Simulated assay, not measured.
Amino acid sequence: MSTIPEKDFPPGRHRVLREHLMREINGETPPEPVRRIWRRPAFVAPVVAAALSVAVVIGAGVTRDAASDGPPRPHSGASERPERSSSESPAQLLERVAVAAAKLPTGVEGDEFVYTKTDNYHWKMDPEKTVGDCPRTLEGHGYGVRERWESVDGRHVGLSREHKSGGGVVERPIAEQLPGKHTVNFYEQALELPTDTEGMYRWLYGLDPGEKPSGKRSADVAAFVKASGLLTGSLLPPKTAAALYRAVAEIPGLIVLEGARDAEGRTGVAVAMEGVAVIGFGQGESRSELIFDEKTLGYLGESTVNLAVPKHRCDSLAAGDLVGSIAILERTVVDRKGEQP
Score class of each variant (00 low, 15 high):
Met1Asp: 14
Pro5Leu: 15
Asp8Met: 01
Asp8Val: 02
Pro10Met: 01
Pro10Ser: 10
Pro11His: 12
His14Thr: 08
His14Phe: 08
Arg15Thr: 03
Leu17Ile: 03
Arg18Phe: 01
Arg18Val: 01
Glu19Tyr: 04
Glu24Cys: 04
Glu24Leu: 08
Glu24Val: 09
Ile25Asn: 03
Ile25Tyr: 11
Glu28Leu: 01
Thr29Val: 08
Thr29Ile: 05
Pro31Gln: 01
Pro33Met: 02
Val34Trp: 00
Val34Lys: 00
Arg35Thr: 12
Arg40Leu: 06
Arg40Gln: 11
Pro41Asn: 05
Ala42Ile: 09
Ala45Asn: 14
Ala45Gln: 13
Val47Trp: 07
Val47Thr: 15
Ala49Pro: 00
Ala51Met: 09
Val54His: 01
Gly59Ala: 13
Gly61Pro: 06
Val62Arg: 11
Arg64Tyr: 13
Asp65Ser: 15
Ser68Lys: 05
Ser68Val: 13
Asp69Ala: 14
Pro71Asp: 09
Pro72Gln: 11
Pro72Val: 11
Gly77Val: 14
Ser79Pro: 09
Glu80Arg: 06
Glu80Asn: 10
Ser86Glu: 12
Glu88Lys: 15
Pro90Asn: 00
Gln92Phe: 05
Leu93His: 09
Ala100Asp: 06
Ala101Trp: 03
Ala102Tyr: 03
Ala102Arg: 08
Leu104Asn: 13
Pro105Ser: 10
Thr106Asp: 13
Glu109Met: 04
Phe113Lys: 04
Val114Lys: 00
Thr116Glu: 03
Lys117His: 02
His122Cys: 07
Asp126Lys: 02
Pro127Val: 12
Glu128Asp: 06
Asp133Arg: 09
Thr137Phe: 11
Gly144Val: 08
Arg146Gly: 05
Arg148Gln: 11
Val152Phe: 09
Asp153Cys: 13
His156Ile: 06
His156Glu: 10
Lys164Ile: 15
Arg172Thr: 07
Ile174Gly: 02
Ala175Ser: 14
Glu176Ala: 05
Leu178Pro: 13
Lys181Ala: 15
Lys181Trp: 07
Asn185Ser: 10
Ala190Gln: 03
Glu192Asp: 11
Thr197Phe: 03
Met200Arg: 06
Leu204Ser: 08
Tyr205Ser: 04
Asp208Ala: 14
Pro209Cys: 08
Ser214Trp: 06
Arg217Lys: 10
Ser218Asn: 04
Ala219Cys: 02
Ala222Asn: 12
Val225Gln: 10
Val225Lys: 01
Ala227Tyr: 11
Gly229Trp: 00
Ala242Ile: 06
Leu244Glu: 08
Val248Glu: 04
Glu250Lys: 01
Ile251Pro: 03
Leu254Gln: 07
Leu254His: 01
Val256Phe: 01
Glu258Gln: 15
Glu258Gly: 10
Glu264Gln: 14
Glu264His: 09
Glu264Met: 12
Glu274Thr: 11
Ala277Asn: 05
Gly284His: 15
Arg287Ala: 09
Glu289Gln: 15
Leu290Asp: 14
Ile291Asp: 11
Tyr299Cys: 07
Gly301Tyr: 03
Glu302Lys: 06
Asn306Arg: 05
Leu307Asn: 00
Cys314Thr: 07
Asp315Gln: 07
Leu317Trp: 02
Ala318Tyr: 11
Gly320Tyr: 03
Asp321Cys: 10
Leu322His: 07
Thr332Ile: 08
Asp335Asn: 07
Glu339Ala: 13
Glu339Ile: 00
Glu339Leu: 00
Pro341Ser: 05
